[in-house]
Design a protein around this nucleic acid. Structure first.
Lengths: 118, 118
DNA sequence: ATGCGTGCTCGACAGGTCGTAGTACTACGC
DNA sequence: GCGTAGTACTACGACCTGTCGAGCACGCAT
């Protein structure tokens, strides 16, 4: 997987926060603080689609964009990808476990316990 | 933190695999399969140093390069960085836990348990 | 049918990163 | 003093990302 640029991430954030698919225009309105040309938004939306981060469906003449995966899935995938980079996965995992702060360690522990129960 | 390019990663891999600090020449010899100009190796070593991935110390006229951190620390940091990207950390963590394969879940579980004991 | 607005696709350009390397300067040993 | 090893500086092409403009298509109101 490829990483995302600054603007690409902002746009993904907007779409992830939304429950419905949005048009380029709508995304542009939501990202108004940056005062971008409409074509800029369209281009980025297009690139994100090409990269597989978004799906789009027709809505009249316009496209409506929605995330291809949830943000959590994306984040988890990034984490796994990082993990793949090491030769010694268990060392990295151990290290990671140690680095996770208390409450989050608890969350992890619980998720792992549930796994075990299934 | 920034990501690493292809060659940068290869060189980090070499240095991570080594227990002693190496000179540019030595690194070049170890990466011989790619038949790079010596200056190429030096440049990359230099960039890695500037980016903070390596430390270097003088050895006569030459520099001797060593990783600034272990690979595991680097990987763990990447994973945490990915985690920071989400709004809902616990969802991402849960997702991650589910994605980790059996034996690795076991490793994680054990690391977390040890944490708890301290 | 004409023209305006909306939306699309293509192409482009600038700034940054990365792989790759040449050149020019320096210091050490023989 | 000269060759060699090693450095620093500079460069260049490819690719990525942010940012748009130009030009084309379509539908609605006049």
């Amino acid at each position: 997987m490829k990483g995302l640029g600054e603007l690409e991430r902002s746009i993904m954030d907007i779409l992830w926060a939304q429950s419905t698919a949005l048009t380029a225009r709508e995304v542009g309105r939501l990202i108004a603080d940056r005062d971008l040309a409409p074509t800029t938004v369209m281009t980025v939306l297009d690139r994100l689609t090409r990269k597989g981060f978004l799906h789009r469906t027709r809505d009249g003449r316009a496209w409506r964009y929605a995330p291809a995966a949830t943000r959590d899935a994306y984040v988890a995938e990034l984490m796994l990808e990082a993990l793949d980079m090491t030769g010694d996965r268990s060392a990295a995992l151990t290290r990671f476990a140690q680095a996770v702060s208390g409450p989050e360690a608890e969350i992890l522990r619980r998720a792992l316990t549930e796994l075990e129960d299934e």
